[in-house]
């Protein structure tokens, strides 16, 4: 996904992505990332949490408007542990 993001950004369209693996993001270097503490397969947290999904989208809009450094990774504080 990082490669896709890099190509779209390079083509002149600003991008924002979600991420949960800092090591991998450090290797792929996407232009703008919101880092979440959620497990694989649930970048917006638990199913049915409408206000959290909305909050993270608003965070993404804010990140687009306020990030100025290429490669910035902004950590979001929200927590939820996927049940085993």
């Amino acid at each position: 996904m990082g490669l896709i993001q890099r190509m779209v950004e390079e083509a002149g369209i600003p991008t924002i992505s979600m991420g949960n693996e800092p090591d991998r993001m450090a290797r792929i270097k996407p232009p703008r990332v919101l880092q979440v503490k959620f497990a694989r397969g649930s970048m917006f947290g638990e199913p049915g949490n409408v206000s959290r999904q909305r909050r993270i989208l608003l965070d993404a809009l804010d990140a687009l408007q306020t990030m100025t450094e290429p490669g910035e990774i902004r950590e979001l504080p929200y927590q939820w542990k996927r049940p085993d």
Binding site: L3, M7, A11, P14, I16, M18, G19, M43, L57
Partner: peptide, 26 residues
């Protein structure tokens, strides 16, 4: 992916007048 599919995606996004793209990996 990078030689065919993503260039196609970019052309669709541009034709659609997209100002910003949200990407959600799993």
């Amino acid at each position: 992916l990078v030689t065919q599919t993503v260039p196609k995606l970019i052309s669709w996004l541009k034709a659609d007048g997209v100002d910003a793209l949200l990407l959600v990996p799993v």
